[in-house]
Design a protein around this nucleic acid. Structure first.
Ligand SMILES: [Mn+2]
Ligand SMILES: [Mn+2]
Ligand SMILES: [Zn+2]
Ligand SMILES: [Zn+2]
Lengths: 151, 151
DNA sequence: AGCTTTATTGAGAAGGATACACAATAACTC
DNA sequence: GAGTTATTGTGTATCCTTCTCAATAAAGCT
């Protein structure tokens, strides 16, 4: 959960015998510059890259998202839309959680410092190396409560 | 997040114009009697039912799991195995969270009263009707840290 | 208890997100 | 700069979940 640069990413990859590629660097940059509150799916990322003139294959995108999530660079969000979303994983003052309406998928972000502390403490106590810690609240938003539509 | 009986489930279903079926009642019973710490996927549930002589189609199982999750009876867990798992949703003394190894999927349950309080307060503040509240910690377990296998 | 309405089921097919296979490429090490 | 091998791109495969639709059976009313 530290801020990555192309250089530090390369160092961490090489340390494990892996390589920094233009594709990986481009994808990291995209997430670093993503406005707060945005989350990208694999396809979102693919389209965003295309708009910017970068062609990176969907396979590489899926592989890179998974890689970066497992390195702790990105967090993988299950926002109840049937596919995963990703955002940059940031420490304390930016770290946040998600309140999700299970009917319309409207999502609200909120902060709570205690939760990350609880997560860190729990992981440490069990000898786990922490990657990400997210509180997910499944709920029904005011609009959907008023609507008469079933489930 | 209250304890359901067949009767109270029927009441809540009928109130919305829905019906209590033998399939739904059977599935509720399965989850109520599931030993602590167990989570079932759709296919797990299908097999468990088959062993007990109940034939309930996979379609119905998927529909029922989704229905009960959206009613707040079950909680839907994303345990990083590529498919969802479900468990009964219980209030305070039984309410718990999950610490998951993203490499081997080993999962540890832990309790923390403050988190459910935070979740309830946050949902209420935004006017959301709370269904479930779960802290997910993605991490790497001691065994996987020692293994040299990539990601 | 019987009748009517319509939510629900079961079987199979379809959909969609993600992973895989493998030859071509290119990042790293020396 | 050359050799090694991780990574990419393309197409294909896999698997979880949802959809379709005719048959069934709960619920509500007499
Ligand atoms: Mn977010
Ligand atoms: Mn559990
Ligand atoms: Zn909503
Ligand atoms: Zn592990």
């Amino acid at each position: 959960m530290t801020a990555y640069t192309a250089t530090s990413l390369k160092a961490e990859l090489n340390e494990r015998g892996w390589r920094l590629t233009p594709q990986r660097e481009t994808i990291l940059t995209i997430f670093q510059n993503l406005p707060k509150g945005n989350h990208l799916s694999a396809e979102d990322l693919y389209n965003l890259l295309s708009e910017e003139g970068h062609h990176i294959s969907l396979s590489t995108i899926y592989r890179t998202l998974k890689l970066m999530a497992r390195m702790g660079i990105l967090r993988e969000l299950e926002l109840a839309e049937g596919h995963k979303h990703y955002e940059i994983n940031q420490p304390a003052p930016y770290h946040h959680h998600h309140l999700i309406c299970v009917r319309c998928n409207k999502t609200i972000e909120f902060k709570n410092d205690g939760i990350l502390k609880t997560g860190s403490r729990t992981a440490q106590k069990e000898g786990y190396h922490l990657l990400d810690c997210q509180l997910i609240i499944h709920a029904i938003c005011p609009t959907c409560q008023r609507s008469l539509l079933p489930i």
